[in-house]
């Protein structure tokens, strides 16, 4: 497999070989970028839109990319920032997606009890994650799901490893508190 640095160098030379090198980089990181966006966004369409924007930004900025830095960290940072910007823009446009406002009857009634319980758990956890503050949520997603090292996340977000560890721990505590609260309500 051609190293990222070589592909970036080819891209910087320009021409059709440069574009081919860029396509190779897209193929290499498209799934990772998509899932970073998708886990923080509510729909595939939103994640698709944001993931495409990420690669367009990468294309526009790759000529000035410092090859000493990790390409992977750089592209993740763009993905996280694009996703956060998208969420902020969505919040401004509407408080909740229309799908959430329409309480369509689900097919839960036909599911076995176990499935219903799992579905209920999933819904509760999703709600709990959604209530996390923006930074905690990003740290939680990148560490828990993408299993990135604290050092990588720190480079992406420009914060200290100690601060990130605290953010990660508090994210779990907030989820725990939310679940306790919801169980009391039931």
């Amino acid at each position: 497999m051609t190293p990222d640095k070589e592909l970036i160098a080819r891209f910087k030379q320009g021409g059709s070989q440069g574009e081919k090198a860029f396509t190779e980089l897209v193929r290499r990181y498209q799934e990772k970028v998509y899932w970073v966006c998708r886990r923080m966004l509510k729909s595939h369409d939103d994640a698709d839109d944001v993931a495409q924007n990420v690669f367009i930004k990468v294309h526009n900025g790759l000529s000035g990319f410092n090859e000493e830095a990790e390409f992977f960290t750089w592209i993740y940072r763009i993905a996280v920032n694009e996703t956060i910007n998208f969420i902020r823009a969505q919040k401004v446009r509407s408080a909740a997606p229309i799908d959430d406002l329409i309480n369509e009857p689900s097919d839960d009634a036909e599911r076995p009890d176990e499935s219903m319980e799992r579905e209920e758990q999933r819904r509760l956890i999703q709600e709990a994650i959604d209530t996390l503050p923006e930074k905690q949520k990003v740290v939680f997603m990148l560490r828990y799901y993408d299993e990135l090292a604290y050092e990588e996340i720190a480079e992406m977000l420009g914060t200290s490893v100690g601060g990130l560890k605290a953010n990660y721990f508090h994210a779990f505590k907030k989820i725990e508190e939310y679940l306790k609260l919801r169980l009391k309500q039931h």
């Binding site: 193929r27 495409q52 956890i125 999703q126």
Partner: peptide, 29 residues
């Protein structure tokens, strides 16, 4: 609890990805 829910969430999200989505992604970009 998060682990159990995440399996369901991941499976639901994967079902939402259209067929050949990643095969065509680079072309769209």
């Amino acid at each position: 609890r998060i682990e159990m829910a995440s399996e369901v969430m991941q499976s639901e999200m994967e079902q939402g990805v259209p067929p050949f989505y990643f095969a065509n992604f680079a072309d769209k970009v």
